[in-house]
């Protein structure tokens, strides 16, 4: 539930910070934040992440720091 509740907290922060920007509607959190939630959990379970080289990032056409996948990617 750490994933769920991290998303809940980021959603609450986002709703409040952008309360004058959001129009009525249903939104999902940006992929960058989704990746951030995952990233926050890696240390705890001993995951060592590989970092893209600038050349690799350019080859894939994504920023070195992410987000790494297009919105239509389904994992």
């Amino acid at each position: 539930m750490s994933n769920s509740f991290s998303n809940q907290t980021l959603a609450q922060l986002d709703l409040w910070k952008n309360k004058d920007v959001y129009k009525v509607g249903v939104y999902t959190l940006p992929k960058k934040l989704d990746e951030e939630v995952a990233r926050l959990h890696l240390d705890k379970i001993g995951v060592k992440l590989t970092k893209l080289t600038p050349k690799q990032a350019e080859y894939l056409g994504v920023p070195v720091e992410g987000p790494y996948k297009p919105d239509h990617y389904r994992y």
């Binding site: 994933n3 249903v26 939104y27 994992y75």
Partner: peptide, 28 residues
């Protein structure tokens, strides 16, 4: 429920769908 309310024009506030964060639905 939220998407249904949005479709029917009944939704009163902005809503964030936390469920469909990949780190939620594909994990918890």
């Amino acid at each position: 429920r939220l998407y249904k309310m949005q479709q029917e024009g009944k939704l009163l506030v902005p809503a964030i769908n936390v469920n469909d964060s990949v780190t939620k639905s594909k994990f918890d």
